[in-house]
Design a binder for these strands. Structure first.
Lengths: 217, 217, 217, 217
DNA sequence: GATGAATGAGAGTTCATTCAT
DNA sequence: GATGAATGAACTCTCATTCAT
């Protein structure tokens, strides 16, 4: 970015440009995304666009960045809640979060996914996954006792990558799955498997003893 | 394809064009892939390119097609071998196949992965996964007794999508994982989880003792 | 033309190429007229086409030439018949011939007209008109006594050019006129005017005496 | 046209493009008319060309339009002057106007003539003729008493088409005729014939005497 | 002689980017 | 700062023509 938009007006300008970018990408696809079109859609001149974005890629990068920040925040925010929750609930929460993040603003999500490679934002995207995986790895380490995991960060990588791919593929190819509880359950099983948990039907945790009290509640 | 290359010379021409496409894609990426460049790299004139490929996309589609056919064949070929193998061996075979397919011709695999969405070949790509998933779903149904799966085709989708994403991400971001047995073991656990199997450490059925009590529960 | 087609086979080949050219021109227009298409339509290889026509223009020129020869022959053939006919009949015959030549094979006529300029065949076409005009000028000179013409060849030029333009425009823009007797009568008047004849209604010649009997009829 | 050139600079740009188009058409013909060439000849970039003309054809269409507007205005402007003039003067004025319009900017006129069909502007061109013919038909109706015309609009069509063709052919093939009074006289006769007038030599009605004897014959 | 695969110059057109206003 | 007309390199694709088989 050429200038950092500190003033209110600049921020608004940058925002409207990013919005326009998203709109065009979603509605008309990558090939329709020209700088001139974006500027016009944002009600701004091309020249102004180039005041804040050094080139077209920066524009898209800006869009993706915002999108990713948003997602990261939501997922990282899960952390604390997971800390003390029973395993089954924690896993359920992770899966639910993954699915709901995907459902949210699905069209933009979809467009971005389809164009990620083009933008060279793949690495950037991976960084997102990494941050989430780090949080997850920490949690795994924390709860090591209850789990059966050799390498927490590897397990976290596998879980995050799989959930990511599954929600994305579902979004792109089988959107109905995003609403399906059966799908959610299958994902929970996958996660449980990665964590070395025994396959409890439903969400029943393996340590009957520990959980008993709670169920009694 | 405009003409079908039946003669030896034509076949060679088409092959060299696809090779050139792959080479450029691998070395310089999508944006460097221009029809003139491909033709020149293939030692052929643009005109000849257009004799066999109606447009640029067809060129990439041709590349992907060949690549996908190859992979599909290899994975589908696994089927018979799985039929009667013990569960842990079958899972191991699936994971091993996924990893080795990914390792094979990794650079092209990588480029195709990076460029796939662009050409609307995603659906095509998914078709590949679908074919593999179908075979897997059949196998799950066949071994239903030994497994704990609600919806075989859903489980197959989850497994295939995850393995696919994990091997691809590993290839792109952590190539060393493709050779790591720890990674393989983690993948096997994931698959086992999806199939509702108890978490056997490694592939050994030796954990029977530990698990026995639980089952008895 | 590269070779002169003396043998029967060559003639047939040349003819089928010209036919194909005409067909494509009529059915799909100038832009569809490519040498490859013509060759294929004629059931011949491009190479063979180039044996007989040095280039694309020659192909079209050949077509136009045949077409023009045909027309010229028909119009020049009128000459003798005109020699002794009464003026009104002669004029009627000329106009009728012009109209019928135009009606004949109208679609090709139309295509050629539309493309004449492109082909640089305009001069060639004018040559056709010139030949016809020459015959007409001779006839005017022959019948000078009965007419009132200063410069026979100028009058012939005017008549031929006008008739030509009128039949062509009629063909292109108002095809129904080609069948209209009122149009024919109007053309006859124009010709009569060019020849310095007084405007007799219908075809009646100006020499009332001669015509008196007829009218009386 | 993509944008409408309202500012002075834009107008100049558009004008210089049309001028360049005319120049190239005149000097090198249709096949030399490429958008890049036109832009370069106009001292402008191709991009600018495409800012005002959506495609190549629009460029030529723009040229023809301007040219046709010009001509139409001049010819339609004749109308009032004809209204009350004696017949022979009116006819003379029409012929003179046709000839002078043709002489004016002859080279462009020539090129446009040669290239018109190509761009499907024939219909457009005919519209021009139609407008002129309409004015003429009105005039014929007005002066019906003095003339001998069955169908004024048909007669007008014949006159306009003939004059048009004759002046154009003269321009292309015998430019000297455009200056020749004998040619003018011959055209006047043609027009007179179309209007059912007796063949007055020159424009003078004074030939009544001369013709009388003949008629008497 | 015939074939048609191969050629490659060159066409129309786009769009990221600049810079005079 | 903002504007948007102007730029022009670069792209995809065509088709008249050639020449090895």
């Amino acid at each position: 970015m050429r200038k950092h938009p500190t003033q209110a007006r600049s921020r608004a300008l940058v925002d409207s440009l990013l919005e326009a970018t998203a709109r065009i990408l979603v509605q008309d696809g990558w090939d329709a995304l020209t700088t001139n079109r974006v500027a016009k859609a944002a009600g701004v001149s091309v020249g102004s666009l180039y005041q804040y974005f050094p080139n077209k890629d920066a524009l898209v990068a800006g869009l993706v960045e915002g999108w990713a920040d948003n997602i990261t925040k939501r997922l990282v925010a899960l952390g604390p809640a997971l800390a003390e929750a029973p395993l089954d609930e924690a896993i359920g929460a992770v899966v639910t979060a993954a699915l709901s993040v995907t459902r949210e603003d699905a069209p933009l999500h979809r467009s971005v996914l389809l164009q990620l490679p083009r933008i060279g934002a793949l690495a950037f995207f991976e960084q997102l996954n990494q941050r989430v995986a780090d949080v997850l790895a920490e949690w795994i380490t924390l709860r090591r006792e209850e789990l059966d995991v050799d390498d927490p960060s590897l397990a976290a990588f596998v879980i995050v990558t799989s959930l990511d791919a599954l929600t994305d593929h579902a979004l792109l190819l089988r959107p109905e799955l995003l609403e399906s509880s059966r799908f959610a359950r299958q994902l929970e099983r996958m996660v449980a498997g990665c964590l070395g948990l025994e396959p409890n039907r439903g969400r029943a945790p393996r340590n009957a003893q520990r959980n008993a009290p709670r169920r009694a509640k």
